Amino acid sequence: MKRLLICAVIFLPLFGYIFFPTVPVIKKEELRISSVKQGELKIEVSGYGKLRSRDQRVISSDDKAIVEKVYFYPGDRVEADTVIVAMSNPELVRKVDQASFELAKHKASMEEKKLQDQYTLLEQEQTIHNLRNQIQLEKLNHAAQLELHKKNIVSDIDFERTTLKLSDLEKQLETSIGRLAFLKNLHAKQIELQQKIEDQLQLNYDTAKQMLDKMQVTAGIAGILQELTVDIGSSVSAGEKIALVGSDSDLVVRLKVPQFNADKIKLGMPGRIQTLAGKVDTVVKRIDPTVVDGKVNIEMALVGQHVPGLRPELTVDGSIEIDTIKNALYIELPESVRANSEQSLLKVLNDTGQWQKLRFGMQSDSLIEIKGGAAVGDRFVLSSLANYSDSGSLKLE
């Protein structure tokens, strides 16, 4: 009898477990539970990225220099004439001084020559004036002697001498007038040549001065200083990048999306980004053909009114609407469920849960279409219950 009691104590619980197994119990507050809904389902592809400036300016050094001051840093807003960095180059200062001296020296020499030429022309004009006066007097003398010669009062030799003198004065006048014209032309050619030399010296000075002025590095365009590659005391080589400035008035979004979703995206598809200032509508403008780390860059243009606070390099979350399903059954995306698959979810029936096979369709970022196995209002557990997949049902508390 005693042995019979011992056997009953041992085998009765085992018999009950085999024929009446215990139902696992899970607390509802530990689970994600959602209801099946019906309506318009927008299929969206989400990603993350940054705002980029369509208009960017890379600032580089035209000559070697030393950075003396830094006035602005990345993130600061600048205007086109804002000085970002001040640099120095003693050799450029020497070149400017030398070019300035050569230019001033040549200008002084030209002024001196112009005065000398003017004096020479005045002398020649005075000579012509004197010759004209002499000719006028000689003509009067010649006319008087002509009358006397007719009366044989003046000899032929004296009259001929007067005639020759008048002719000689007229020849001198003609030569002097020609010499005056020649001098004017000569002086003009010389001034033209000297002006070309001055223009070259001016260009040398302007070039040197421009190089020196560029030691005061300006933004060039209004926008946001995005990069600064130098600091006080840095040594900069010719052609070395100093800064990058991007306009904040013409921005685009470069969104990174998973490669397996990129094939569904087409040009012109609508989208939106989320910023601290609110949502901004976008439209797909370019799809990068390259894949980096499993991601594809999608470039989108901003649509509509400009939202305050947008700036280059601002990190944003965004989505692209690739399709819209009318009158669809859908539910929040369960864990470990993928689009266009058949999987079982735990259906909530009051305080119990039973496994139900569902056929899923297209997937959005947070929602997924249900093509079969559920009705509007059905409630399902979205949390992963892989450890309970062998249990026919679960008790929910």
Rank of each mutant, 00 (worst) to 15 (best):
L251W: 06
Q38C: 06
V236Y: 07
N350L: 08
L228V: 00
L180R: 12
L122V: 14
L166Y: 14
V83L: 04
F360T: 03
Q134N: 13
Q195V: 06
L183D: 09
D62Q: 13
S364F: 05
D281K: 08
S237M: 05
I287T: 04
K113F: 14
L140E: 14
A219R: 04
N261R: 15
A328K: 04
S167G: 04
R54E: 13
L186D: 14
L367A: 04
P270G: 07
Q126M: 09
A65I: 02
L212Q: 11
I43V: 13
V36W: 09
S235Q: 13
L329T: 00
M211F: 04
V230K: 01
R94E: 15
A386S: 15
Q195W: 07
F20S: 11
K37V: 00
I331N: 09
S237L: 06
R338T: 09
R57Y: 01
T282K: 06
T324Q: 13
V217Y: 04
L385D: 10
G268Q: 04
S366C: 04
G353L: 10
V83R: 05
I322M: 06
V70G: 01
Q134A: 11
V337M: 07
S176Q: 06
V70T: 01
Q356I: 02
L382A: 09
V25N: 14
I26N: 07
L41W: 06
A104F: 04
K326M: 01
L225M: 05
I33V: 12
G178Q: 12
L276W: 08
K42C: 02
D213Y: 01
S366M: 11
E397H: 09
Q226W: 02
L173M: 13
D281Y: 00
A339M: 12
